[in-house]
Design a protein around this nucleic acid. Sequence first.
DNA 1: ATCTGAACGCAGTGTTTAGG
DNA 2: CCTAAACACTGCGTTCAGAT
Length: 318
Amino acid sequence: MSEDLKYEMVEYSKDVATSINEFSAYELDVFLCLVYVSRSMLDHRKVSETENLKLELPSSMVKKFLTGAHNSRVKKAIENIFDTKVYLKDDKYTKVRHLFEGLDYSSDYKTIDFELKKEYIKLFYNLSGNFTQHKIKEFTSLKSRYAKRIYQIIMSYKNLYKWEFDAIEFRKILDIPDSYGWSDIDVKLMRKIKVELQNNTNISDISLIKEKSGRNITKVTLKWKLSNTEVLEEIDFIEELEEVIEENILERKQLSSESEKLYENYMKMNDAIKKIIYEKAKNYFLEEIGIPKENKTIDKIWKKTEKLYVVKVMKGDI
DNA sequence: ATCTGAACGCAGTGTTTAGG
DNA sequence: CCTAAACACTGCGTTCAGAT
């Protein structure tokens, strides 16, 4: 795998990350690669939503990120992705849907005919908020299906360092078989996921806190830490923060020297440009967190991380 | 007192993936 | 292509704690 693919990012709505689906590990990879390639083929911020999105994707691009990309295997995965139901929640219903109008591998294996139903264009394109972003290579390097799904969830809410689920919902999102008891989830899933994410990503110390009401577990909270993230140097966190931020955000982290230079450049810019960059960074941060209203706690997180986001804007990542 | 689900351990099968 | 290893799943039995 060549180096230049390492930092390729894919973006999609958090509703996809937390949707219920039955994709296998390999299908998840193929699915995200399709999204990635389709987004790179057009201006993904300006896609018409009045008609289905039809594209012809070069299969070589899709296969670049995949391990074991034999045509027969890719073909089978594409067929399964087309078939697999996705459960999307809105206020009133959990909708059971197929996302694609068509998804076909050409007989010469050169292209993939891709037709996304118009109502789901907003899950992958024209993203203005509530979306998640992650490195596609990092995602495909995870082997277990459960690890991938946990990764998607964590990336959706990464700066919050925890996320709470209804217990049944959690099992559905991860598609855990009914035969698994909660302790099986601990022993057979979480332990492995923890190791896998620790080895392949900067996510560490994953834990699942279970909350009982009566005999039954009704709520679970997924917690995690991020290591080697570029956040801020020399912050002294003395003040006590509310529960959203636990001690784990309070670690000292450093910007790389390259990023530090970019930040210095930013500081030298004139105020008007600085303001534009600053606002862009902040908007991105708020979108990423997915919390519409600013509050004291969010503002505190922002203060700790604004430098990072400014650097991201400078790099053109945002 | 009884019942139920969680926690834990164990044994075994089927499926997917990596690597020669 | 094939094989070994890793992953995914099933089932069963025991112990424990809390609900009814």
